[in-house]
Simulated assay, not measured.
Amino acid sequence: MPLTNSWLAGDSPTRRLPREVLEERILNLLSTHNTAVIATVNDDGSPNATPVRYFNLGFEIVYTSWNGSVKSRNLRRDVRVAAGIVAPLVGQASSRGAQIFGTARTVERDDPDADEYWEAVRWQSDHVERGRSLDQPPRDPLTVIKAHRIVYTEHWLRREGFAPRQTWTETSQG
């Protein structure tokens, strides 16, 4: 049988990407996708995973959420959160995604830094789709996830001799 991607055969390389290259790849993924699965912790300790449409400002993930939603209630109790973002998967060679581990906070519309985050949210298309006026911006709260650690996976990195799984942290690369 022909081997489609010979560079996928054998052991994975272990070489780390330079931090600036890893950051560029992570930002490319975050900027070219818009769906994440957000994982929070329920009262009883069980996981709760919810798909959301997100926007990013650097390594921060921003999404709209009502205060009464399960994920928002969970985050008020426990700010720890994980988010998974994945590119469309065709095969091992296209495997690309990120697991983001961090903390979340709610930004109400009247918070001093709300406008900065709302500028990143493309709410206008939602308003048009729902027949709402573009003269009346949303009043919903936003949830902002600050990444503390990101595990980035890209099997294409093996072609260049790098490990397919790379870890970014706020202060260093491991």
Rank of each mutant, 00 (worst) to 15 (best):
L3Q: 12
N5S: 02
S6E: 04
W7H: 10
S12W: 11
T14A: 01
L17A: 00
P18S: 06
P18M: 10
P18L: 09
L22W: 04
L22F: 00
L22P: 00
E24W: 06
V37T: 08
V37Y: 11
D44Q: 10
G45M: 03
N48C: 02
A49R: 07
P51C: 14
R53D: 15
S65Y: 02
G68N: 05
S72W: 12
S72F: 07
R73S: 10
D78P: 05
A82T: 15
G84R: 13
V86N: 12
V86C: 14
P88K: 09
P88H: 04
L89Y: 09
V90N: 13
Q92K: 12
G102T: 02
R109L: 03
A114W: 07
D115P: 15
E116S: 15
V121M: 06
E129Q: 13
R130V: 13
L134S: 02
L134E: 11
P137G: 01
P138Y: 04
V144R: 09
V144T: 08
V144W: 00
K146V: 01
V151T: 05
T153M: 04
E154P: 04
L157K: 00
L157P: 00
L157G: 03
G161I: 02
F162A: 01
R165K: 10
W168G: 04
T171E: 14
S172R: 14
